[in-house]
């Protein structure tokens, strides 16, 4: 076969292969996702129970991704979970922001939700969010529900 045609085909093949890789990186894995792009600051928060939260889970505020969970550790002093988040430096949050662990949909993945407070002072790199709300664990909810029912039934008698 003609050398030039061969080169052309192989060139097209390689270009196609790299285009596919780019597609997988950009569209499928979404490397350039908002909230992880550009400069970030690190925030910490302690939770009683993080449920199924995983590293790299999104950090959202008002439903918009503003960051990612960077690390999860167990603190043996307080017996709590310490979650480290990288949040876009472009969105400063007030000191009295509340961090809670939420679930997208009934069976969806868990993420950290940030509800902004009203403080005039802003959180800085390395700061800790003091007010947190743990994950709702289904078994606990059901247990509580049954307990309440039982208590109701008892008092109604």
């Amino acid at each position: 076969m003609n050398r030039a045609i061969l080169d052309l085909w192989v060139g097209a093949f390689v270009a196609l292969g790299f285009a596919a890789l780019m597609f997988l990186a950009m569209q499928v894995a979404n490397v350039s996702e908002e909230g992880t792009r550009g400069e970030t600051i690190t925030l910490r928060a302690r939770f009683e129970d993080i449920g199924g939260l995983k590293v790299k889970a999104p950090v959202k505020s008002a439903g918009v991704v503003v960051g990612r969970v960077a690390a999860i550790r167990f603190d043996p002093q307080t017996y709590q979970a310490e979650v480290e988040m990288k949040v876009s430096a472009a969105y400063p949050f007030p000191k009295d922001t509340i961090a809670s662990i939420l679930t997208s949909g009934l069976l969806g993945e868990q993420y950290v939700g940030l509800a902004a407070g009203a403080d005039s002072e802003m959180l800085k790199d390395g700061d800790r969010i003091e007010m947190t709300q743990s994950a709702l664990v289904l078994e606990k909810l059901i247990g509580q529900f049954l307990f309440n029912k039982a208590a109701e039934g008892g008092s109604n008698k």
Partner: peptide
């Protein structure tokens, strides 16, 4: 479809490992 995909697919963990 796309946002759920992007949320659960990790570049290093999934794309790079596949390659």
């Amino acid at each position: 479809f796309w946002s759920q995909m992007a949320n659960s697919v990790d570049f290093r963990e999934d794309v790079v490992n596949g390659v």
